[in-house]
Design a protein around this nucleic acid. Structure first.
Lengths: 110, 110
DNA sequence: CATTATCTATACAATATAGAATAAATATGC
DNA sequence: GCATATTTATTCTATATTGTATAGATAATG
């Protein structure tokens, strides 16, 4: 395990989106899912750049989808999280959890 | 609120360490706390660079401490989280929480 | 002034961001 | 059935911000 096996903040969010979307995860739905759940605006370029980086690192894989019977549009590139990616999100999640647990800090519902 | 008001992954960890340490938070103890709780090795330079950046952004403040009766050593620079910093950690925490909640993923105890 | 603890400066690598350009598929008018 | 418009999606390019390591400066004590 290399020195840097934690997900960056946005990488973390993206991987969580993939886990949520299961077999419906591609660039556009990933962006939607994040914007929907976090109210955060996300540029599509940021999504793809991060997905590419995650794929290079072996945290996700992608494959082309077949054309769908909808109005047109380029074929989709679907993503899913690998075992290595699941391990990374686990590590990141736990590090944060250990730093948070027992903390006398009241989280507001902003 | 600017477009980027989320803490980076390491920034997030550092702010949590400050909240834990309360009035005992300075470079060395911050590093210790993180290494202790997460098993992650942290270089002291990384800690200071991040603290400086957080201070520039108004998420933390720092002040010099008095010399202690121990064997020597330079005077400490103590840090604490500002209201703005608390808001940022809240936002970051909630975004992650919303992306995580209801997720059918079993976190392992790695 | 030697020893110890801490901080500062600097350089470099990795991650995050935006927006424009390109590609692939279907629909439609002729 | 061909040309072209429309829709959906991805890729490319450029830049800013964050994360990391190392080396060395500074301050206090005895």
């Amino acid at each position: 395990m290399s020195r840097r096996d934690y997900l960056g903040e946005f990488e973390h969010i993206i991987v969580l989106a993939l886990l949520r979307l299961e077999d419906r995860a591609y660039g556009v739905t990933v962006r939607q899912e994040i914007e929907l759940r976090t109210q955060r605006e996300v540029s599509i370029g940021a999504v793809y750049a991060t997905l590419d980086r995650l794929e290079t690192k072996g945290y996700v894989t992608s494959h082309r989808g077949e054309p769908t019977p909808e109005r047109g549009g380029r074929s989709k590139r679907f993503f899913r999280v690998t075992a290595k990616g699941a391990a990374a999100v686990n590590r990141t999640h736990h590090a944060l959890q250990r730093m948070t647990e027992g903390l006398g800090f009241t989280w507001s519902h902003a």
